[in-house]
């Protein structure tokens, strides 16, 4: 007899069940149940945000090199569990070819952002030649806690393509998995967990998008919301974001790789400091 996997959620580096005690079934193409997954609640979102906020300082202050190493480690771990992902994808209705492509894309995506971790700052920051005796520079800083609603039509890449650029830039994330295809999300949480990613940096919930996304959008301690075309939900989410002027990144379609996905989750900070002109007389170096 096959032992079925229990699909839990991932909050603060632990794998709890939803506090609500609710579940929903995932069915395969033939209509038979392949798993029960957590139907997470607003309170799970709240707990995840608390966990993500708690580690934001530590994660954002890690060296860029270190964050790159950890993202690369995630790619390695994903590669190592390729078969499991392929199986889950096909179980959820993907063809073998599509599943293989999606896993490969996800690995490539992690490697891609691993490389960006210590480079995007150099591309996007500036030294600004002001007309006064000051040194002035603008550098990027992570926004903070990012609410992410995974792209809904895929199980794995739709999740990875938003998580990777967010944490690459030093943010922490609270993620709602694909509602219909959540299996890979939980397995991906295990990849995250085993990849030196500190607990709380990535938090993954399964459940109804219509329940989780509004909870993230309205949460006053979430700094940005990332979504991909959720249809009728887009406008209410945009409205809910206004209360704390949450940055609302509602992509029509996001591709798995691009610098703009990192920079969109960064604030530009400009710093001024006086430059002393030595001596009173003219200086010729």
């Amino acid at each position: 007899m096959e032992i079925l996997k229990t699909y839990k959620i991932y909050i603060g580096g632990a794998f709890p069940r939803t506090e609500s005690g609710r579940y929903y079934p995932i069915v395969d193409a033939s209509g038979s149940t392949i798993a029960n997954v957590c139907l997470s609640s607003r309170k799970d979102v709240r707990n995840a945000v608390v966990a993500a906020r708690k580690v934001f300082g530590g994660w954002s202050e890690k060296t860029a090199f270190n964050r790159g190493q950890i993202l690369y480690r995630m790619a390695e771990m994903l590669e190592g569990r390729k078969l499991q992902f392929l199986e889950e994808l096909t179980k959820q209705g993907s063809s073998k070819e599509a599943a293989a492509l999606e896993v490969q894309e996800s690995i490539d995506c992690l490697v891609y952002y691993a490389g960006w971790a210590d480079k995007f700052q150099q591309i996007a920051s500036s030294v600004n030649p002001v007309s006064s005796s000051h040194f002035n520079f603008s550098a990027l800083e992570p926004m903070g806690v990012i609410g992410i609603v995974a792209a809904q039509e895929t199980s794995l890449i739709g999740l990875v393509k938003f998580i990777a650029p967010a944490i690459c830039g030093g943010n922490t994330a609270v993620v709602a998995a694909s509602e219909a295809f959540p299996l890979c999300a939980v397995t991906f949480a295990e990849v995250v967990h085993s990849s030196d990613v500190p607990g709380g940096v990535v938090n993954i919930l399964t459940g109804k998008v219509s329940e989780l996304a509004p909870a993230m959008a309205a949460h006053m301690d979430v700094n940005a919301l990332v979504t991909e075309s959720l249809g009728e939900l887009d406008k209410p989410l945009a409205l809910a974001c206004v209360d704390n002027l949450k940055r609302n990144l509602a992509y029509q379609h996001a591709v798995p790789q691009g610098l703009q996905y990192i920079t969109a989750l960064q604030e530009v900070k400009t710093t001024w400091h006086p430059i002393e002109q030595i001596g009173g007389a003219s200086s010729s170096y």
Binding site: S126, N128, P129, V130, S131, S132, H134, N136, S138, V268, T270, T271, W272, H273, P274
Partner: peptide, 12 residues
């Protein structure tokens, strides 16, 4: 830092 309320067109 060690100044305040400085503005410049080149400074975001």
């Amino acid at each position: 830092a060690n100044t305040y309320n400085k503005f410049d067109p080149v400074s975001p």
